[in-house]
Design a protein around this nucleic acid. Structure first.
Lengths: 209, 209, 209, 209
DNA sequence: GATGAATGAGAGTTCATTCAT
DNA sequence: GATGAATGAACTCTCATTCAT
């Protein structure tokens, strides 16, 4: 009676629908994306969507939250490796700015929700919870880094972590598809690190002269 | 034959509709905001809206672009007053962060459009043009400030201005209604200025004189 | 600002929709009657229905309950006139059996609901409440008639009133459109009165011999 | 080569599906009962239903007509035993009123069809034919009883038999699940017999005192 | 100038039925 | 023989827009 193959196929198709949904919701917004369009993009008929998700709303929830969980896991992994806080943070910034273009749609979807928090109160709360886990972890690592003299001690860790997340979101929002090929792109990434006010760079700047 | 009074009333009602539209579009998105709801919020009936705007789309365009023009004018004004570039930029940051809560909905609307640039290509272009005027002006002032030694010369003005705008957007997006009363709020504002990498920020203000 | 004419027209159209709805719901059942069909029968387009009733369900409720209230008022009126209980009951039976064909659809709708009480619990309750008012009133009149010697004292008023209502429903259900022209129709009406076990008729029968 | 065991199992499952279908169709109506729900209630999957019945409609037909045939057979059996017409009719009434609660759903289904005769013209015709066999038989027995002086000769047998069937339907429709435990239930049964206007009962009642 | 009833295209969702497994 | 995923037509309901009043 076991049907592992079917179950696998089901999951595959489910994630196929989800992937298409992320793109379309991000590009067109919730109401302007029809379930028929999603179905067509996946290559199935209208009714099939509802075999995998009970409603359009449920599909939207999944499209927002599931990729967000993925991103979070990857980002947090950077901060839990071996190394001094300064190195960990630098790695995280590298990771996030290098992959920002892979997650453009996922991030836009999150921003879309945050921008309409009255319309999507439940989703907003979950997104904010997820964000809080990020900022809390960054805060913690940053505070250690300050004690070790790797970061300027004048800034509050809570503020720094929020400022960084704001900046990251702002960059994802403001910049277009062609971010990566932009001549300033590399500098912007470096500037993101500068936001953390590391003590080293100045020395480096000093040395380099 | 002129009817200034009626004309005045017309304008008043028009801007009343526009104001409601900004709030509702920002909170609920374009498709999820019905013209009937806007009409009801203003206190008129469904048909009246179309006496002032030819279509829902036209109303949306106006709701996005007209406030944006306002904000731009005010921001640019800061940069065209007398004073050294450092002071001008500091004033602009002050001005923008102090008034960010007044324009939450207007900014969210802009971000809503930028997040869906495929859906709103025309609007996106106009918004980006408007943003470009801002960044260009900031760039110009910043470059002067670098020459005068007020800012770190290692950063490119183009990058700095874009980073700042990204940060501003990110803050508007990420933070909730209670921003201003948040204990970190004051620091975040200061950190915004720090993004510009001024050479002697605190010392100049206090000690230098 | 007063618009009595419009309000009147609204009510007129509302009752026009309701009338059509009663017929169609009774003939085809709830699910098999499309709102589009109702609209078409009335001579309006699909959307118009929803200007008068918030949903198909609400329309159905109105189609069941409003005529029922009408019928009840008329039936009860018979029992509240001057005359001995025997005469009042005879009048009521006359009234109901003479008009049963006018209300075929309305009665079928009620029976349709009662037959599916699990599906329509709220409606069923309201219909049963309405029926209880009827049976209670009949009971009361009947008991008086028994005291006055007009009805056989061996039967319980509660049972008699329920038996009569059951019979009335059964007749409405079982007989087709051609009831009135059926040769037995007149006798069936008389038999309905016989259900009440009046004491007089037999004497009459005796007299006639 | 015959496979009696499999065939038996098939019949068993078929009647299992039919039994569930009767209950669900009666409770929810035709359109509101999905084949998926029937399948689930039986404990099979959606497709299986169509191995036993070619379509939902065919299943509905069977659910209405097969139990009706059963009921008819049992009822007619009462009238074909030995005994005077008066006794036979009394037995039939006893039998039907004693078992009415067993067939609530089956009867409701018949009433459901009769209530929507335009929607189910074929079924209605078959049900009416079946009913006619019943009324004709009762008529015949009743007429004999009149000749033998067991029933009042003033009533027409055709009318009496129809009135009784109407009453029976009305009772099944109007009364709820708790019929049997209702204090008036016994009297209602007796009243059903009274509908036939037997000549003896009153004398009996008189004698017994 | 304002009204608000009517429109009708289009949305999300359901479900009887099929068929490869 | 049983399964259950896919289908796609049909349903209810929404809403920007028009226009007679």
């Amino acid at each position: 009676m076991a049907r592992p193959i079917n179950e696998e196929k089901r999951q595959e198709r489910r994630s196929c629908i989800l992937k298409e949904a992320v793109v379309l919701f991000a590009e067109n917004g919730y109401s302007n994306t029809t379930t028929a369009l999603i179905a067509q993009s996946v290559g199935v008929t209208a009714g099939t969507i509802f075999q995998y998700f009970p409603s359009k709303e449920a599909l939207f929830y999944a499209a927002v939250l599931e990729p967000l969980a993925d991103i979070q896991v990857k980002s947090l992994a950077c901060l839990k490796q071996e190394g001094t806080p300064g190195v960990l943070i630098k790695n995280m910034v590298e990771e996030q700015f290098n992959h920002i273009y892979c997650y453009t749609n996922e991030l836009r979807l999150v921003q879309y929700v945050l921008g309409q928090r009255i319309r999507f109160p439940e989703l907003t709360q979950k997104v904010l919870e997820s964000t809080k886990v990020m900022t809390d972890t960054i805060e913690c690592v940053y505070a250690k880094g300050q004690l070790m003299g790797e970061f300027n001690k004048n800034f509050s860790p809570a503020m720094i972590s929020r400022a960084y997340i704001s900046f990251l979101n702002g960059v994802a929002l403001t910049l277009g598809e062609s971010i990566i090929h932009h001549p300033e792109w590399g500098n912007l990434k470096e500037h993101a690190l500068y936001l953390f006010a590391p003590t080293q760079p100045k020395e480096k700047a000093g040395e380099s002269k």
